[in-house]
Design a protein around this nucleic acid. Structure first.
Lengths: 201, 201, 201, 201
DNA sequence: AATGAATGAGGATTCATTCAT
DNA sequence: GATGAATGAATCCTCATTCAT
């Protein structure tokens, strides 16, 4: 046993509980960046380091790998939901916001691929996928409300399939390139997409 | 020495001259299975074990993780090329073979996503992506030859984008389900696809 | 991911597979010493270090903490069994060997206390206790065969209870002191004990 | 645990003046429970949580792990002392109280084994043992006063050895089972024991 | 005086890779 | 060539302990 932190070492700054909310946000931001650079399997230690916090803080806020990924995705999904709920929202507009997140967040793309892996991928991320379908369903619900009859896509299922397809096309080293490809993909599907941008309430 | 096979030294394995080739094939087959079950990041030790060979053999044949993935992909790509080169080949037919590989091989799907990640994914697979675009280009070349004017897709670029999109839709725990979704995706794109099956020379 | 051993570092001696048996024995010996000094919960890393092997070797030979403890105990139990099976063995003689192990091996004392904890102790050692009762039963069987009628102890159950009691008395910093107390304990129980020494076939 | 408050009272934020004393008692009670469930090495955080206080409070009252264990033991020892000091106390009666604590408290058993480990056990508990012999001596003193000539046990040393032996037998998942075994052990020693129960002044 | 967040060291465990046989 | 043991770095995760509020 013996946990002893070698006793009398110097102890770095401890900003106290006040830092809690800041740390949580920093962790989510760091995770988003690290996910983008290294994928969902990136070492948690690197995320903590980039967030500028100790390992323990990460575990305090997010008991496991999935909880952190959830928190990251939650932000993406919420923006899509907000875009869908905004006054005067149109399908094209919501898809624009959705597309923005596709081009921005590796984790969000992973979400749309969640059931694709259906147990076929790394065990380690399986837990992530447990919540993924719930989040995915929230995206579907957001889009569903704006489906109108005169549409090339037959229904919500087609729409989510289309989203998955576009996410398959979202490729490239820069966001601009990814956006270009996303728009090309939507065009191939004959679906109109509004401005690709984050939701601004 | 009599001609009678009295020799009962038990040979743990058949160390004949063709053992090397056999081992190589076994490793590729094992890798394909393991990739499907655990993703491209699966431990190499498990692949060697499933192939029934020692760790050293794996390293002899494939100096690094990427070389093994390449070898797996090579087989997929080659079948597509063969389908494209066969007498009487049609675009629909080639796409059928391509689609079969999409539904069959996690590694092959990864290939089509290769440049999508463009350095954004796990470091460990970066090396894989080095060769990926070369392989991807071979697929593109195979399809290009069969593009005819009267097509909804404007050209080879559109076609490869479409392939990437379909791969994004290829999802689900069973091959049948993945095929169903792939076909639905092609349908959304308005592209005709032939029988989904491996190439049979 | 990325496991890279920082690439081109120097790699210490590797005696090859020949070392396997030696390493296993060294691990068991090291474990015995470390258990004696620090208890059954001692860090495995320290055991590996004392054995002069890498962490991985420990895990190769003993998949978990319990397997290592089992291996250590196995040696103790076997000696008792051998003492019991030897020609001309008497209960007093077997108890002498048993007592020697009680005074020698912290792990062996733990064995006799195995079901005492019955889930009340550190979760981490629970697994150890799974096998413990099997080993404990082997000790009981070894003693049972030598129980004669004219004994103060009513039967095997009493005998094992007595062993547990003596193990509770086996205390002190030196083996000599522990032996002194063990003999005093047997005396309080009115049980005759032979020479306290390891079994010498 | 005796009449010890099971420490489950809700404590919103009652910062009254007696809060300190109440917290101290809650910590001891919580520690007793946690020790029983998880052993002396149980995480301190769990004890604080069960006591319904912050980590800091634990450290305020008990500067180190040993201080907390001491406080727990102190209660056990005190009850034995009180039983010994009570009017009309007999050795059998005191042993009954002692036995009750043996069957109830993992920490108390540890106390009797304190010098057995004599530096051979987990470092983390070493400090505990510093005070242990003092407490052990208090138990010895309590029993000594009731030793009468006509006893099978020759003196206080024999008596304490017997106590250690019985503690070695106190085994099993339920208190009832542990009591059964303790009584069997005393019987093997030929020592009469009174009612096994906490001291009720 | 209490709370509970933060730090970060320690120990567990897993593999990539090398290499003696 | 093949085998599979050995090494050890990296990552995970868990606390002991401190300290801002």
């Amino acid at each position: 046993m013996t946990q002893h932190p070698t006793a009398e070492e110097r102890r770095p700054a401890n900003d106290g509980p006040k830092a809690a909310a800041r740390n949580r946000a920093a962790l989510i931001a760091a995770a988003r960046e690290v996910y983008a650079e290294h994928g969902l399997d990136a070492p948690l230690s690197g995320i903590a380091r980039r967030a500028g916090v100790g390992q323990g803080v990460l575990y305090r806020h997010f008991p496991d790998r999935a909880a952190l990924a959830d928190a990251v995705l939650e932000e993406n999904v919420r923006e899509v939901e907000q875009a869908a709920a905004a006054a005067g929202a149109t399908l094209a507009g919501v898809l624009g916001v959705l597309t923005w997140h596709l081009t921005e967040s590796a984790a969000f793309i992973g979400l749309l691929h969640a059931d694709r892996t259906g147990g076929r991928t790394e065990d380690r991320t399986d837990v992530v996928h447990a919540h993924a379908s719930a989040l995915s369903e929230r995206v579907a619900r957001s889009l569903r409300g704006h489906l109108t009859g005169g549409h090339r896509l037959g229904g919500a299922d087609d729409l989510m399939l289309a989203v998955a397809m576009v996410s398959g096309a979202v490729t490239g080293p820069t966001r601009a390139e990814r956006e270009r490809r996303a728009l090309a993909a939507w065009r191939l599907l004959g679906v109109e997409v509004g401005a690709v941008r984050p939701f601004a309430g």
